[in-house]
């Protein structure tokens, strides 16, 4: 900026709006525009999650004589769930690398691994939820459990949507190839999947680790 601007406009009369600066300020590449729009969606989604977190934090003591977090949470299962999501984030990154290398086999393998790890996470979560409901600790037991099922279940629904999207991306890449628009969709899928892992960090810290201690 400074070197180019100084050469054309030594007294800074244009306040940085030199020809070169205008050139850079033209229409941004579509990849940048698309990812900005998707970032705005992710931020809105995370703000929605913050409402669920706030509701949970307010209601965590309201157990209505029922079981509290320390009676219910099995941290070994939570650790496995965390590892599954982290590994799937990594394989999702591998898929993006393989797609930029235009390597169909590795893209499909990495996306398949991402979807399978996500499905394994969902399986564990469904197992945990069904166990809680069988113990009589379902969402209707207390305000604490309503908030718990709403927050963790909402994250689970997002992961389900992500697994479906992952399968859709595999099919699209398989049939349409590495077209620019398909690659932008893959970029958005990657952002979505990594954002889910960020929300899970909040879930396992605030819900499970703090809940199991208090």
């Amino acid at each position: 900026m400074s070197s180019v601007g100084a050469a054309e406009d030594p007294h800074h009369l244009a306040h940085g709006h030199t020809a070169a600066a205008r050139d850079e300020g033209g229409i941004a590449p579509k990849r940048i525009v698309v990812s900005y729009g998707f970032w705005l969606f992710l931020v809105s989604d995370i703000i929605m999650f913050s409402a669920f977190f706030a509701a949970y934090a307010v209601l965590v003591q309201a157990t209505a004589g029922g079981p509290a977090g320390r009676d219910l949470f099995k941290l070994k299962m939570v650790a496995i769930e965390t590892a599954l999501l982290l590994a799937s984030s990594f394989t999702c990154g591998l898929a993006v690398i393989a797609a930029s290398a235009r390597d169909m086999d590795w893209t499909q393998r990495a996306l398949g691994a991402t979807g399978l790890l996500g499905a394994a996470f969902l399986g564990l979560e469904a197992y945990e939820f069904s166990g809680l409901i069988r113990e009589g600790a379902g969402p209707q037991r207390s305000a604490f459990l309503s908030a718990f099922f709403a927050l963790v279940g909402c994250h689970g629904l997002h992961v389900s949507a992500g697994v479906l999207w992952c399968g859709t991306m595999m099919a699209q890449i398989w049939t349409k190839g590495f077209r620019a628009d398909i690659l932008r969709r893959l970029l958005c899928f990657g952002l979505f999947w990594h954002a889910l892992d960020i929300i899970w960090i909040g879930v396992f810290t605030i819900v499970y680790l703090m809940g199991a201690r208090s």
Partner: peptide
Amino acid sequence: DDAHGRAPGPAAALDAGG
């Protein structure tokens, strides 16, 4: 692969600086 690829020239120099 984008329709609006950046033209080489002063913009590229700016980009490299920032």
